Amino acid sequence: MIDGASYGLLAGLMVCGLVLLLVFGSVIHGYYALACACALVAFAGLNGLAPRGPSAHWPAAALVLWTVCRLQFGRHLLRLKDFAPRLDRVAQATLVLFAIAVLYAALETQLVWTLRTVQALAVASTVILAVGAVMVLRRLPWPAALFLAGAALLIGGISATPMSIWLDPAWAPRRMNFAQAAVIAELMVFVIAIGVRLRADRALEARTQQKVEDLGTDALTGATSRAGFESRGRDWLREGRPFSLMLADLNGFSRVNERHGRAGGDAVLAAMARRLRQQVRADDMVARLGGDEFAILLVGTPARHKLAEMAIRMLTAGARPVEHDGRLLAGGELNFGIASHPVDGDTLESIVQAADRALRHCEQQRMGPAYAFAGELHE
């Protein structure tokens, strides 16, 4: 019953890691899910196989892989590459020893030596990461503190578990395997640390984006922010300068986030902003209004066919695949709503509304071009 509850907890934590990986697409969530999976396979095998059987060393090999995933998870959780680069290089160097240990565990049929190797690797990696946690405690107080708490649980569990428990043919209730319980407890603490780190990253990202947007730039794409767009538009209106506005959004952008996570969606948005800027002149402006919606302010009021040609060029550029993390993601299918000042409005709000109506009309059409003009809707 105790083993069944342990397996259920590990499976639940693994599913939690996979969900986070699918939603956010971060490598830290992948390492966490793999650590849970390796621990589940290792404990199920060690508890179910004969300790001196010919296959007993394979679950122990899974336990070595758990130490590898745990080390990689700790490096990313504590951001050692950014805050403790020398220690991070030491941690990366130990991966060579881990690789040798994996081969040893896969070939060595003497379970006791494999388990001692696992103990040594787990303790060594814990010491390295604990030093890192102390070094980054000021910058990442809660993730570092939670990591230290989880590491203390693990070391305590390993110390309290005699090696003979893994080697007995039958498990005795009075001789609880504290190491197994400690691994699960540590993984539970780690998932809390992931949540705390995610919340802190979101808060920092929001503060950074707000500061950048105050300067007129969208932090994600490098395009002009909504505030910058509104400021430029009102300046042109005060100067009495004629201009055209193209509103654009991406069809099916939600599917990109579902398939490739938030990181994939961000890569597509950044690529779209870059490609739109490549199609306009130096005096024109490309702004991100939010989500997958962009605005292009064009100096003057070009002829209708010129604006149509520009929309087609942008559509073609946006449709190219986007390279992200070694994969090619589908590009964006753009729609455009086009309005001009002073023909379609005399305030920025009315011009934006006119372009937005044209954009919605374009999205509702099943046939026809991927752009629409506000003036033609009036007609």
Rank of each mutant, 00 (worst) to 15 (best):
A219V: 01
S254H: 13
A200L: 08
L237F: 09
A263T: 14
G233N: 07
L245H: 06
L269G: 08
G265S: 11
D218W: 00
A200K: 05
D249V: 05
G264N: 08
T208D: 13
S244I: 04
E230R: 11
L276R: 01
F253V: 09
D218H: 03
V280M: 00
L220C: 09
L220G: 02
R207L: 08
A223V: 06
G233P: 02
R275N: 10
L237G: 05
R234V: 01
R275K: 07
R274Y: 10
R199V: 13
S244A: 09
G261M: 09
T208Q: 13
G195I: 03
G261Y: 04
A227L: 05
E213L: 04
T217A: 14
A248M: 13
I194C: 13
R281C: 11
A200W: 07
D284Y: 10
R281D: 11
D218F: 01
A200F: 02
Q210C: 07
V268N: 11
S244Q: 06
R262H: 15
T217G: 01
Q210I: 09
A273G: 13
E213C: 00
Q210G: 03
G264F: 00
A287M: 02
D218R: 11
N251A: 06
T217S: 07
R199N: 14
S244R: 05
D214V: 06
A223H: 08
L245S: 05
A206N: 10
M272L: 15
M246Q: 13
A200Y: 13
R199Q: 12
M285D: 06
R197N: 13
G240V: 07
A223F: 14
R275H: 09
D249I: 07
L247I: 06
E213M: 02
L204A: 14
G233Q: 04
D218M: 01
A200Q: 10
F243W: 09
A267Y: 07
L289H: 04
G261E: 07
E205C: 07
L269R: 07
Q209F: 00
K211R: 15
M246Y: 02
E239A: 15
W236I: 02
R226H: 12
A271N: 15
R197W: 12
A282C: 05
R226L: 03
F253W: 07
V212E: 06
A206W: 04
G265I: 12
M285G: 09
R232C: 05
F229I: 03
G291C: 06
L247C: 11
L289E: 08
G222P: 01
L247K: 06
D201M: 07
R232W: 14
G233T: 02
A271S: 15
D266R: 03
G252T: 15
D218V: 00
L245D: 00
L198T: 12
A227S: 03
G291A: 08
R288T: 01
L220N: 02
S225W: 00
R255D: 13
L250E: 06
A227E: 03
A287L: 01
A282T: 15
D249E: 12
A203W: 09
R207I: 01
L247E: 08
T221P: 00
Q278R: 15
R238P: 01
L198S: 14
T221R: 00
A287D: 04
A203C: 08
V196S: 10
R199P: 00
R207D: 09
D201W: 02
A248Q: 04
A263K: 06
S231D: 10
A227Q: 04
T217W: 03
E205D: 14
M285A: 02
